Deep mutational scan, measured.
Amino acid sequence: GAYRMKIYDRDELRGQMSELTDDCISVQDRFHLTEIHSLNVLEGSWILYEMPNYRGRQYLLRPGEYRRFLDWGAPNAKVGSLRRVMD
């Protein structure tokens, strides 16, 4: 299947937008971000990790809009890595 997600540095799907279609071992290295404040999962399911290298707390992201970090259940906006959930 296809995988696509848009990430934003501000809440409510605002601010600088970056797009992912594959795994990202370090959000900071690739996008120069340490925080993601909202996101829109367009295709596929993903796991968001608090730390790089797929470590730390993890949150399942199904397709849909997440307008603030509380929407995916996190206590803050800190994001380290993102990985696709393969079928």
Rank of each mutant, 00 (worst) to 15 (best):
V41W: 02
Q28W: 06
G80L: 02
S38I: 03
F69C: 08
S18I: 12
F31N: 15
N76I: 10
L82Y: 13
I7S: 02
S81C: 08
R57I: 05
R57C: 05
Y66P: 01
V27K: 01
G80W: 01
L61H: 01
E12V: 11
I47E: 08
P52E: 13
Y59A: 07
V79G: 03
D87I: 15
K78I: 12
R62T: 08
H32K: 15
M17I: 14
G15D: 14
Y66L: 02
N40M: 04
R4W: 10
D29Y: 09
Y66R: 04
D71L: 07
L82S: 02
A77R: 09
M17W: 12
R14H: 06
R30D: 10
N40A: 09
A77P: 14
A74R: 02
R4H: 10
E35V: 05
D23K: 01
L13G: 15
R57T: 05
P75F: 06
M17K: 13
S45I: 14
Y49G: 00
L42T: 06
S26Y: 13
T21F: 13
G64M: 03
Y49D: 00
R10F: 13
A77M: 15
S38D: 02
D23Y: 12
L42A: 15
V27P: 03
V79S: 03
R62N: 11
V79Y: 03
V41C: 10
R55F: 14
L39V: 06
L60Q: 08
L60V: 13
G44S: 04
R62D: 06
A74F: 15
D11L: 13
R14T: 08
L61T: 03
W46C: 01
D9R: 12
E65Q: 09
Y3M: 15
R30N: 07
S81H: 00
R68K: 11
G15R: 04
Y66E: 00
V79W: 03
M5S: 09
R14K: 15
L13R: 14
I25E: 09
R10E: 13
R62G: 10
A77W: 15
Y3V: 14
G64A: 03
F69W: 06
S18T: 08
G73W: 11
E19C: 07
L48G: 03
G1I: 14
R57P: 06
R62A: 07
D22A: 09
R67F: 04
S45L: 04
L48S: 00
H32S: 07
L70T: 14
Y49T: 02
W72Q: 00
D11F: 04
E65W: 15
I36Y: 04
L48N: 00
G64V: 03
M17H: 12
N76C: 10
A2H: 11
L20M: 10
R67Y: 04
G80K: 02
L82K: 03
E65P: 15
F31M: 10
Y49S: 02
F69Q: 13
M17A: 11
A74C: 13
L60F: 11
Q58A: 04
V79H: 03
Y3I: 15
L60M: 13
N53T: 03
Y59V: 05
S38Q: 01
R62Q: 13
M51L: 11
F31L: 10
L33P: 13
Q16H: 06
S81P: 01
D29N: 12
R55G: 09
L20R: 01
K78Y: 07
S81N: 00
V41E: 02
R84L: 05
R68P: 01
C24F: 05
I7V: 08
H32E: 09
L70F: 05
L70E: 11
G80E: 01
I47A: 08
V85C: 05
L42W: 10
Y3D: 15
W46R: 00
S18D: 06
D23G: 06
I47M: 05
I36D: 02
Y59P: 00
S45A: 09
S38N: 02
G15A: 10
A2N: 15
G44V: 00
W46T: 01
M86A: 10
E65D: 06
D29L: 15
G1T: 09
G1Q: 11
R84N: 00
I25D: 13
E35M: 05
Q28V: 09
S81W: 01
T21D: 12
A77L: 13
A2G: 10
G1V: 09
L39A: 04
I25M: 14
F31K: 15
E12R: 07
N53R: 05
I7N: 01
Q28F: 08
D29A: 11
I47T: 04
A2E: 12
Y49I: 00
R4T: 10
R57Q: 11
D71H: 04
R62Y: 07
K78N: 10
S18K: 14
L13V: 14
Q28K: 15
P63L: 02
Y8T: 05
I47K: 04
M17E: 09
L61G: 03
D23R: 00
P75A: 07
I36F: 08
L70I: 12
P52W: 03
R84V: 14
L39Q: 09
V85M: 15
D71N: 06
R84S: 07
R10G: 10
L13C: 05
Y54W: 05
I7Y: 02
G1A: 13
F31S: 13
H32G: 12
Y49R: 01
N40G: 11
W72G: 02
H37P: 05
R84T: 04
K78F: 12
M51W: 05
Y66A: 03
